[in-house]
Design a protein around this nucleic acid. Structure first.
Lengths: 226, 226
DNA sequence: GTTACTATGGACTAAATAGTCCATTTTTCA
DNA sequence: TGAAAAATGGACTATTTAGTCCATAGTAAC
């Protein structure tokens, strides 16, 4: 009961007690988890209420309706997904680091028992056609994700690792779309094979714009030797 | 009222009158359409009932419950999706025909107003984790789809268009996953750009196994001249 | 026509759903 | 300490949902 530190005096955000923040967090975490497992329409407000061990009035005290809660879930999952890869995302500017990102998320996928697809992809598939606000939010999540790749590829282009006719934005889009397709098929087939093939496909496309293909080979070797 | 021909005597399948078949078809078509637009959980049995202009008892006369109806929808959408590309799918064994398939489905996507994603992909995203029977059915749908590519790539390999170290099954998987990822992002971004980039990415991967890259260039030129 | 089967209409139920409302408890801070 | 604000408990409602049931109408074939 004494684990939170930034306590008392001056509510951290819009007039929320630390107790209140705690409740709100619990709701949001449980909601994100449930929605990931059962989908938005497959998760009732009461399911989330029960999972978070709060009362109905609390649920509606912190989120005025389901739509708003789901919007918060989208933001939360964006932070979760990008956060899990953040240190790697920030340095996607060498062949070696690019390789490291790939092997890391493949290991992540392979070690997890879920095979449940990407939280953002699942939300996008369910909501893009139903809720314009959610669609735009998810689009921005993908923008944010792609931007790390755009930045990395741009640096590689400036440095001369990628040829002048390469388009960093296009390559970034290729990586994210492939990854999403891979997640979807992997979830459907309950096998990581499509995921790996999809990433391989996207990478081959990126590599095809390499100025010195030997650099790419070296980066791969460096990985497998390690 | 006289449009159906295979009428009378000997019910075409399990004791269904032509009138009955007509009702069943109407339900299935409307269900497929509604589920495509609003998702499985977003479409109630009553929605489908109303759209098909049938009574509750009819709905449950032809489909014993929602799960079974959705299973029928999966089969129907598989036929719809593959059927729309069938003549092209059956001859994916030259660079030129491969190009023709790509340009055709891109044109299809671009001309349609929907931008609503692939019906099979959407179903897979919603159901793979929820309904094991549906997951397996969808997996088989993707198997069937991929098989056309496996067959085409195998022929190209035998003929020497694709190098010996190429793996037709892997290339087929690359095409389908890319396509699905492209559909998802295109639906989220309301732009056909991701769809086109995803296909471009998959094709570049396939082309990278070409024995004679000039053949590929010729096939592309042949398209753009036409 | 009569018999047997198929097709249809629609009322009905039990459970689940999103959301409201008000009373009570706990915390803040002057 | 005491008033104001935040947090909580939980009953309640109106609607939607999947699914049942029974009665009636239509059709096939002898």
């Amino acid at each position: 009961m004494r684990k939170e530190e930034g306590r008392k005096l001056m509510p951290n955000n819009g007039s929320l007690t630390s107790r209140g923040q705690n409740s709100r967090e619990r709701i949001l975490n449980q909601a994100a988890q449930l929605v990931y497992e059962k989908g938005v329409r497959g998760t009732s407000m009461d399911d989330m209420r029960a999972a978070a061990s709060v009362s109905k009035s609390q649920l509606y005290h912190y989120f005025s309706n389901k739509e708003e809660l789901i919007l918060a879930v989208i933001e939360r999952q964006t932070v979760n997904v990008l956060g899990a890869q953040l240190p790697l995302l920030e340095h996607l500017d060498t062949w070696e680091n690019l390789e490291k990102w790939r092997t890391t998320i493949i290991d992540l996928k392979e070690s997890s028992e879920s095979l449940g697809g990407c939280p953002l992809g699942s939300l996008a598939s369910e909501l893009a056609d139903q809720d314009e606000t959610a669609r735009v939010a998810l689009m921005h999540s993908f923008d944010e994700w792609e931007q790390y790749f755009i930045d990395g590829f741009s640096k590689m282009k400036e440095r001369g690792d990628l040829r002048a006719e390469s388009d960093p934005a296009e390559l970034a889009c290729a990586v994210i779309t492939s990854l999403q397709g891979g997640q979807l098929l992997t979830k459907t087939r309950k096998s990581t094979r499509p995921f790996k093939i999809a990433l391989q496909t996207a990478y081959a496309y990126v590599f095809s714009f390499a100025t010195n293909p030997q650099d790419v080979e070296m980066a791969k070797k460096g990985r497998s030797q390690d």
